[in-house]
Design a protein around this nucleic acid. Structure first.
Lengths: 100, 100
DNA sequence: TTGGTATATCGGGAAAAGTCGATATACCTT
DNA sequence: AAGGTATATCGACTTTTCCCGATATACCAA
C-alpha cells in the first residue's frame, strides 16, 4: 500500500472515529451482541449505527481502512467483524518516524 | 489544526515528495542560489521546478503543508523559504502513537 | 518611478471523494 | 426451498481536491 493511500484513508473524520472506537470496543459498543467481540472485532452494523451514516457508506469506509492495512476483518456467519490491525498501525508509525 | 486536516495535507503524492525533498535540501536542490538555504529552507521556485507542477499549484501546496504545521516559511526579500517544521512533525508522530 | 522577478491569490474545469438509496450477494433458519 | 438478516456493490448526485492560467501583490534594482 502506497503511503499516500494510507493518509487518504485517514483523511476523513468518520474513519478516524472508527479507528478510535475500535481501540476500546467494550466502551463504545456496549450493545454488541456477540460476547467475544473483543477479540474478533465489532460487526459492521454496530459501527454503522454509532456513526449515523448509511450502511453502504460505512461498508465502503471499512474497506478503505482495510485496504490501508489499518484494520482487518473476520467473517463469521452473516457478520463481518472488524478490528484494528496492529501490524499496519505500527508500520504507519514507522513511516512517520523514518520516511516522513 | 485538526488531525484530519494534517492527514489531508499528507494525502497527495507531490506534497509528500516535497516533505521528503526538504529533509535533504542540499541533495535535492543543488541549484539553490542562496548559500545558507540549509538553515533557512528552500525557496518556492526551486521546489516548483523540481515538482514539474505550476507555480500556483506549488504555492498552494506549500501553504497547505504550512497550515498543517508540517513546514514553516521565512520571507527574505522577494523569496519565501520553506523548511520542515520539526515541532509539527513530532506532534504528528505523537498523534499516531497515542491517539490513533 | 519603471520594470523585473518571486510568490500569492483568484476563477475555473476536470477528477476524486463523500454519501445516499437501491440492489445484489451471502448466509442462516425454518 | 423460502424468507430474513448482514454486508457488499452499484449508480447517481454533491462536495472537495487537483491543478492550471491569469492576475495581483510584494519587493528589488536601475
Amino acid at each position: 500500500m502506497e503511503q499516500v493511500e494510507i493518509f487518504k484513508a485517514l483523511s476523513n473524520k468518520t474513519r478516524l472515529e472508527i479507528l478510535g472506537w475500535l481501540k476500546e470496543p467494550a466502551l463504545h459498543f456496549p450493545d454488541q451482541p456477540n460476547p467475544d467481540f473483543e477479540t474478533v472485532g465489532v460487526c459492521v452494523g454496530q459501527i454503522q449505527i454509532k456513526s449515523g451514516l448509511s450502511q453502504s457508506t460505512i461498508s465502503e469506509y471499512l474497506s478503505i481502512l482495510q485496504r490501508a492495512d489499518l484494520i482487518s476483518s473476520t467473517r463469521v456467519g452473516q457478520w463481518t467483524y472488524y478490528k484494528r490491525n496492529q501490524e499496519g498501525l505500527e508500520k504507519l508509525s514507522k513511516i512517520i518516524n523514518t520516511e516522513l
